[in-house]
Nucleic acid binder design. Sequence first.
DNA 1: CGTCAAATTGACAAGGCTCAAGTGCCGTGG
DNA 2: CCACGGCACTTGAGCCTTGTCAATTTGACG
Lengths: 243, 243
Amino acid sequence: MGILATELHACLARKLGGRNRLSGDDILAIESLPLRERHLKAGTLIVDENQIVSELCLLIEGFACRSKVTRGGSRQIVSFHVAGDILDIQHLFFAQADHNVQLISDAKVAFIPMEPLREIVRSRPEVATALWRDALVDASIFREWVLNVGRRPAPVRVSHMLCEFATKCETAGVHTASGLVLPMTQDHIADAAGLTSVHVNRVLRVLRELELIAGSGRAFRIADWAGLQRFAEFRPNYLHLAA
Amino acid sequence: MGILATELHACLARKLGGRNRLSGDDILAIESLPLRERHLKAGTLIVDENQIVSELCLLIEGFACRSKVTRGGSRQIVSFHVAGDILDIQHLFFAQADHNVQLISDAKVAFIPMEPLREIVRSRPEVATALWRDALVDASIFREWVLNVGRRPAPVRVSHMLCEFATKCETAGVHTASGLVLPMTQDHIADAAGLTSVHVNRVLRVLRELELIAGSGRAFRIADWAGLQRFAEFRPNYLHLAA
DNA sequence: CGTCAAATTGACAAGGCTCAAGTGCCGTGG
DNA sequence: CCACGGCACTTGAGCCTTGTCAATTTGACG
């Protein structure tokens, strides 16, 4: 395992320890997990729908998303992920995947075999609780996405998505919200918002005209963080960052 | 607790035992939970957004939904629930609610105080696992809803929703899929599908013309279950009913 | 038989999609 | 160092799905 592995374990321990009280033994158990590190290219499909999954994937560095596809072939992204996120905890219980997990940028990930993890979950309730809680936050975010995609007009919808992403990035320590540089293309944003990339482009232009964001292409930044949040009706409570 | 309480406990035990292996002690622990039964009227708000929640609610009989509301006041229903469903397990970990839970029909529910439940979760890993798994199924359904609302045209979207609801009803033993009588109004369907009730009405007419459903108003039934599933591109894998 | 909520229908408006063309950027190879 | 190719971004025109507004009908229930 060595030095490198320790860094990865630390990432996991930080993630789980953050909002939970883990004992020293809990941390030790986590650090004893075997894990396999990989550097993967942008676009790599980590989990494919219907695939049988036997490892958990932890995102150490970079960005990823989960998506589902219509029979007609249109894609819907259902979540974005940043460094520190656990990508498919559900496979602790479901062998077969019901969605895709794909890298948005080049990334560093760690794979953990399910079996030892299941053992820890059985023997260490606090660790199980920490993972469970994390999954519940995910679920809360999905609910907000249903609302966002179902009921908000495109400009608000896209802004809301940007606010959430910026907040996740800031929380993960990737960068500050106001300096946001998006790893995703307008196609990604479109697939996440349930819009076309053409329309996302137009919406971004409007946001630029409102001086909520500035710059062009992928390299834009949030020009007015408070204003964008107001416009997006963004209230981060559903991210359950506190407590 | 007596005879009546035993029936409610049985409901919970059945729900959790179904896809999990619970020991006799696990069942005993569940049956020792204090619970409070209530008969409530259609429309009752069980959980209000931002409210502090200290009890878990189990739906024994009847139908419920969870919803979120836009600043502008439009409502998005994020899930429907049938007899046997656990309505807000997330409050094991989050005191503050991030969405509403409301009854669609008159219903019988049971409230379980969180503290004894937390104790069981700490001491009985198998019970915790069963609850956790249930929450992961919920999350999977939310993902499907994001896809449904984000990427499917209205007629397919509504059909898909009907298929899911019929399947949940059948699984819960409420009635068979083909004899479905909806407890919800077209307003509910609209708020769930991210459409207007006017448009839902038009869509239902189309489905009737296609002879996928029959009857009028709320009292319609599925006329062609296989056909409706095909039309809706409904694949129940995301409900994780097996294994 | 009156009342009220839900369902139904029509006419019109609009937000977002499709199709299509063009631009800018960046990495690669000559 | 420059030319080329590819990919993402940008913009325009016209269409279509869905929303809005408003009136009417239906059905359940007291």
